[in-house]
Structure formats: C-alpha cells, structure tokens
Simulated scan of single mutants.
Amino acid sequence: MVVHAHVDSSEIRVGGPRFGLVVSKAVGDSVTRHRVSRRLRHIASGLVAELDPDLLVVVRANPASASAAHADLVHDMRTGLATAVARAREARS
C-alpha cells in the first residue's frame, strides 16, 4: 500500500485525523475491493487515537493487499503512515 499524509492548516476543522481510501479495480473484483476497504478501514480506525487531529491521510491499496495477512497490512500501514507523517511535517516546516 501507499500512504500519503498532509497537514491541514485550515482553521476550520471538523474532527480529525481524516482518512481516505483508494482501492482500484486492479485490486480485484467488487467483492474483493470491498473486503480490502473494510480491512483497511478497521486498521485505520485503530490508529486514529494515535495521530494528531490536523492530519489528512490517503491510503492507496495495491493488488497485493487483497491476499495480505492482517498483520502485514497493519505493519505496512503503520510504517507507511510514520514515513508519510514525517515527510508532511518536514514539508510544513
């Protein structure tokens, strides 16, 4: 998966952090894409409390996400998120 992060500098903010998911047809058929989306949404919901509320995060699933184990998806999202947030904070400075 590929994780992108952006620091939201607007003064008007509703909740946060916010996640967006991109699961293209390359991942699989409709049933597979929805299953991957549900799995990623579940993982993201567990990470919300650990993140700052000013973050906007986009997670793009690769075709390998369809057959990946849950632990692998969690590891990939955590490492991708850490890298993306660090880059977003650095770019903001």
Rank of each mutant, 00 (worst) to 15 (best):
L81N: 03
G20M: 08
A61V: 04
D72M: 00
A49L: 13
H70R: 15
R87Q: 12
L56V: 09
L51H: 04
D29L: 04
M1S: 08
V23I: 08
V58W: 01
S24D: 11
V85M: 01
F19I: 11
L73N: 11
D52Q: 11
R33E: 01
S10N: 12
R89D: 09
V48P: 04
H42L: 11
V59Y: 01
G20D: 02
P53D: 13
A88G: 01
V48L: 00
A5I: 09
L51K: 02
H4N: 06
D8P: 03
P17F: 15
M1W: 07
V85H: 01
M77E: 02
D54V: 05
E11S: 10
V57R: 04
D52I: 08
G28V: 07
A26L: 06
A91Q: 13
V57S: 00
R87N: 09
D72A: 12
V2N: 02
L51C: 12
S93Q: 11
G46H: 12
V7M: 03
V7S: 02
P63L: 06
E11T: 14
L47Q: 14
S37W: 10
N62V: 15
A86F: 03
S30K: 05
N62T: 15
V7Y: 03
V58K: 00
A88T: 03
A82I: 00
R41F: 05
R41I: 01
R60P: 04
L73R: 10
S30G: 06
G80S: 02
R13P: 00
G20R: 05
E50P: 06
S93E: 14
S45C: 10
V14D: 13
S37Q: 13
A26K: 12
M77L: 15
V74I: 12
V36D: 07
A69E: 15
E50A: 14
L47H: 09
H34C: 05
E90Y: 05
L21E: 12
R35G: 09
D29G: 10
L40C: 08
H6L: 14
A5K: 00
S9C: 08
R78Y: 02
A82R: 13
A69P: 01
V3T: 04
V48T: 13
H6D: 09
S37T: 07
P17E: 08
K25L: 10
V27S: 01
S30M: 06
D72S: 12
S9D: 13
